[in-house]
Design a protein around this nucleic acid. Structure first.
Lengths: 323, 323
DNA sequence: ATACTTTTTGCAACCGGTTGCCGAACCCGA
DNA sequence: TCGGGTTCGGCAACCGGTTGCAAAAAGTAT
């Protein structure tokens, strides 16, 4: 059926091992022989069988990429970048979606483990303990989650949150709120810490909430009840939902309440009012994470933390407080 | 290192073939033996090596899923559903993104081909000829694209478009416009045909456009120039961008112009005005496509067309024409 | 020309499963 | 107790590559 290495060997009058080496260890074969073999291989349309290769080398040349929810616009740029980077290194990527469910997440990892050389865990909801257990089975790189001793790519949300709160206080807001995300979220925790560290103003914690528009919609009542006039939302989706929820209750943004999101998704740029937000370098995170992962696949040295900068982008959803 | 089938065989005092059969051909082994073997396997933490299995069976138990752009909110529900369905059948899914580029798309298919048992092609931008050539190499199922003799899942956009135009004319609009998508798009073509078939009203074709908010934003000028008061956009993203573009030019939706989108993405439900749109059963499409694909992987019978219904959802972006 | 390297190639085992074939064990009825 | 039919399990080849080892070839020094 498919053309194998033996077909190529026969057609070019050399042993299969020579063909194999022509591909995977060029320096071990006479350049002349090599070009001939390659020509024949190309002629026959030979493509190495990755399953066979995986069997002997123990390398599948596949990576796993696990995200909480593909539908969240935060992830696609990261996924795209990761895939592109992986492709450059001749790796393929399995993308899996956990539906924000830690149990699904663990299952998924278990299943993937045998099929991939490494796993990228984005914003995992698992406990540290579980992550540490799982790391025994397969190399990991974490994105947006901190576990001691593990390779990690972080985006500096704490700083972003600080910028957000400073922006709000500079506008005269004195009662602030933080609409948090899911409970297992590192991002959420970082934001809370940043909030706790801001002086001279109250920051109410409202949550946990689903990290979606619906979550924001549902949080609108809480926000109003809290009396806050400036709020930082877990992400843009939540912010957009929140703004909608507030509008339904006759509260204007930014007239009555200022809202800041996180992620800088495209929808935020086009919603009305345009969303003030903290931009996250997701594509860079994806690329870097893949590089770290491949590195730790080769050498067992799988540590190191990369911190990426975030930026506050001021648009229309924040305004001066009415004193 | 990892526990293999031979370890299990040794530990349970049977031959490897028996262990193998205990897993993949239960009826060929004594129930008693089987349970014992399974117990031992479980005890040892044995997991079959998929690469090894793939080597002998020729089945990788992987599927490829190729989409034009993961960032387009239209796809994630489809991807999720497809993955879930695949997982139920013990298959994994490679998701790949072509960036709307036919060349990347072809490359991707070529690379994936050897790694998967079948490929799901969503809204491909390739030519029919190319698709027909590629189908020789691996089973395909197409989503949102019609190529004779190939297994296909379609969503009835033509009918949806008809409903949209009827809705607009019923509101009194007499000059309509269709903001089309990319040139290779089947959906776009269907919409154009539906437009051409509507009687008693002009439908101007504006395009091609990028299938994103930016595309819609850019199309705003054309729409105004066309003098249309009712427009159907290629998808919700385009519609949202268009509404924004119109707003920037002082044109109100739905006051001055009515806009209808396609896909019913969440953002449309939360944008202002809430988007009137044609809902697409994307999750169902993903599930069904996977089933068709797996079916055509087993038996070579790879044909059949499934057409899924679409629905018009009227929200706030359409209104009466001012006569 | 001989001995000794170094490069190039072939040989064959191996990775971890699957599967066709065959014999052993077991069941049944006569 | 024996023949015939099932069921069960073992044997071994095979899938398509990779790789350690050794032989062959080519190059170098003496």
């Amino acid at each position: 059926m498919a053309v194998t290495i033996r077909d190529v060997a026969r057609a070019s009058g050399v042993h299969v091992s020579t063909v194999s080496r022509a591909f995977s260890a060029p320096h071990l074969v006479n350049p002349e022989t090599r070009t001939r073999v390659l020509a024949v291989a190309d002629d026959l349309g030979y493509r190495p069988n990755r399953a066979a290769r995986a069997l002997t080398t123990g390398r599948t040349h596949n990576l796993g990429l696990i995200v909480a929810d593909i539908s969240n616009p935060f992830f696609p740029p990261l996924i795209k970048a990761a895939q592109e980077q992986a492709r450059l290194r001749d790796y393929h990527v399995f993308v899996a979606d956990t539906d924000e469910d830690p149990k699904v997440e663990e299952d998924l990892i278990q299943t993937l483990t045998k099929q991939v050389d490494g796993v990228l865990l984005c914003s995992p909801r698992l406990t540290n303990r579980t992550i540490e257990r799982l790391r025994e089975e397969v190399p990991f790189v974490l994105v947006n989650r901190r576990v001691k001793g593990m390779a990690t790519v972080l985006m500096d949300v704490a700083r972003g949150a600080r910028l957000a709160f400073e922006h709000l206080t500079a506008l005269g807001h004195r009662r602030l709120a933080l609409v948090t995300g899911p409970s297992g979220s590192w991002t959420s925790k970082e934001m809370q810490e940043a909030a706790a560290a801001t002086r001279d103003v109250d920051v109410a914690f409202l949550g946990p909430n689903q990290p979606t528009e619906l979550g924001g919609l549902a949080a609108a009542a809480d926000v109003i009840a809290s009396g806050a006039t400036g709020v930082l939302a877990y992400n843009d989706l939540v912010a957009i939902g929140l703004i909608e929820g507030l509008a339904e209750r006759g509260v204007d943004v930014p007239g009555d309440i200022s809202v800041i999101g996180v992620d800088d998704i495209v929808a935020g740029r086009l919603s009305r009012p345009k969303l003030t937000t903290i931009a996250m370098p997701t594509a860079a995170a994806g690329r870097i994470a893949v590089d770290m992962l491949l590195q730790s696949v080769d050498s067992q040295a799988a540590t190191g933390v990369t911190m990426l900068e975030t930026t506050l982008i001021v648009r229309e959803s924040t305004g001066e407080a009415h004193t």
